[in-house]
Amino acid sequence: MTSGPRLYAMVYAALLFLLGATFVIARVDLGAFNTVAALAIAWLKMGLVVAYFMHLRDADRLDAMLFASGFVMLLFVLLALTLGDYFGRVWLAG
């Protein structure tokens, strides 16, 4: 079963459950882990939407590669190298 209303309903239920989970976790003080947990859940939700609603599981390898390239660029290049500057200002200050 790769698609169909039943599967979509299950994915939808999982998404709502994750929304509830992230809402509840945010009410507990975990320090820095609040952000980690919130983002982990966001990634999980995105994974569900992409894999099932957008059918990336069944799509062309090309489409998957394209989509991944966007995230690689964003996370490992734009975000990482820019933050490298900002963290570096503390590490090598003086």
Partner: peptide, 10 residues
């Protein structure tokens, strides 16, 4: 004014 660390990497 970019950090010296970033300058090194770049």
């Amino acid at each position: 004014g970019q950090s010296a660390f970033a300058g090194l990497v770049f």
